[in-house]
Write a protein that binds this DNA or RNA. Sequence first.
DNA 1: ATGAAAGCGCTAACAA
DNA 2: TTGTTAGCGCTTTCAT
Lengths: 338, 338
Amino acid sequence: MAATMKDLARYTGLGLATISSYINGGNVREKNRLKIEEAIAELHYEVNEVARGLKKNETHTIGVVIPELNNIFCAEIITGMEDILRSHGYAIMVCDCRTNVELEKQALDFLMKKRVDGLINIPVDVEGKNLQEFRESGKPIVLIDRKINGIKSDYVLVDNRKSAKEATVLLLSEGHKNIGIICGPRDVFTAEERLQGYKTAFEEAGLPVKESLIYRGNYDIQSGVEGMKELLEKNPEMSAVFVTNYELTMGCMIGINELGLKLPEQISVVGYDSLPFARACSPALTIVTQPTAEIAKEAASIMLERLHPSSEASDEPIVCICQGTMVHGKSVSGFDPG
Amino acid sequence: MAATMKDLARYTGLGLATISSYINGGNVREKNRLKIEEAIAELHYEVNEVARGLKKNETHTIGVVIPELNNIFCAEIITGMEDILRSHGYAIMVCDCRTNVELEKQALDFLMKKRVDGLINIPVDVEGKNLQEFRESGKPIVLIDRKINGIKSDYVLVDNRKSAKEATVLLLSEGHKNIGIICGPRDVFTAEERLQGYKTAFEEAGLPVKESLIYRGNYDIQSGVEGMKELLEKNPEMSAVFVTNYELTMGCMIGINELGLKLPEQISVVGYDSLPFARACSPALTIVTQPTAEIAKEAASIMLERLHPSSEASDEPIVCICQGTMVHGKSVSGFDPG
DNA sequence: ATGAAAGCGCTAACAA
DNA sequence: TTGTTAGCGCTTTCAT
């Protein structure tokens, strides 16, 4: 068994409170300090954060619930948050709910029992019901990437509409008219927003939006492959495509490979998310990148602020909107009517 | 504040022990059971795992320390482990140490204080010193992917030599003689093993290994780009290259793009790790893939076995060696002396 | 089957 | 500055 403060007290002949005071940075007589330090070294003492957590009713642990860890967007955000939070003494408990509402509920339950001090969540449940119980605990919640209707909370979001519109405008400005879009599921906030941005670009250009050019899949590779094939089948005249997340973009490139299409001569492509992947494609992809480091930083900062409110604390929800960026490659060319 | 067992006791008029017994699946008179269930629903009671952890000296939490979360190989393994461990009631605390020995030490300390029940680690410190303290706790440790000299422990490893040799033999059998290799750092176990496999293939073919064809970088994208450029510069006659992890492979493809080389006519490539990426390249890459799901499953199983030893438990270290697989694409062609 | 009480390792009054 | 003590929420004897 690991040594406890009691052991230190016995070893040094001091009282428990003195030890505790020393451990917590209090003042202790020089002579006793040395004794305690000796005891700590000798007995390999390490604070028991579990006991401390019980006593102080704070575990210095943040629950993180996400749809898929195995997804570059999520992984990058978690990496960034973990870095910041741990440097402030907070551990994260990550739960991957596999894009499944029921698993998300279980994860949330699980983390409640573990008494995490706060929750960071990329929500899967669009109803917001899963969060109900946690909200009643009064502990801070930061929602990332997806807005839930009717849930007031701190949010870190990305301006998906703007980026999607920008990407579509680029393709339109190159003369493309038949521009396909490969989207995520109807019930995912970002998917809907990106589609709206696409539609807005058409509307502002005074052009009609063709339903046949809209493919809705899951946010996964398979949907990217299938989406590309189906769009081309239904729209032989399609000359450009906008793909709206990393997995879909990868799938789209696989589809283009398998169909033997030439980029950008036969089809122009604007992808999403991963810059390294875009550069590794031949020719390099034009993409919309998301500021994952910034998202992570904002989310972690809001959480820390909620845990230790500064003087001018307000209980108004904090909503932080980050901006994506277009990075130009060589996968977009002017429309060639020939 | 959340409800406690005391509250349930007061609400039902029962004793604390009865409540505890019910919560833990003990027998309770039907009438009382109903009362307790009513109280739980009414007061929104949830077990406090922190208190339970203190009392039982087990937190149902596993520490996971890895070099980079933001790395597809690590992310896939964590995803798999988290799934299995959580379904057995264990949470994971993930710490990303950014491939930094000092940060790894801090993470390990941190997790000790949090009293995790076990540790899963892709070790960065090749000396094994970082693990010393945790080992003294007597709690189970499972090491993944990298062997540490002189540390007896449970391991889940991949047969890197075999895969690397197989990849090199493929290139040799296509008539290539000047085959470059882009490796990871000298002090990373897998990097060294993969290089050994490459060398063995040459030796068994009776061919000399040229030092100029060996590029050592970090396991990152930048090294892949630079490695590719440097190898070609030093070895204009190089007709094939073996790239030994995902990030390097991505970097290598970026380099090939930037140099405007034709695949596989001008250079044959065998990559590593990510199958979707390989398929998204044009032409599709031939690669060595690692069985991340299997690694995750084995690591989680060993951990669970150590936490709850079956009857025929042995304290001999368990070493599990998984096998990689070659997946053939179109990035390798016969050597054309023309 | 149920209750009373001790104690896990720590912190925080309070007293000295 | 230091020591004594109670108690965080739970489990676990030991009685009943």
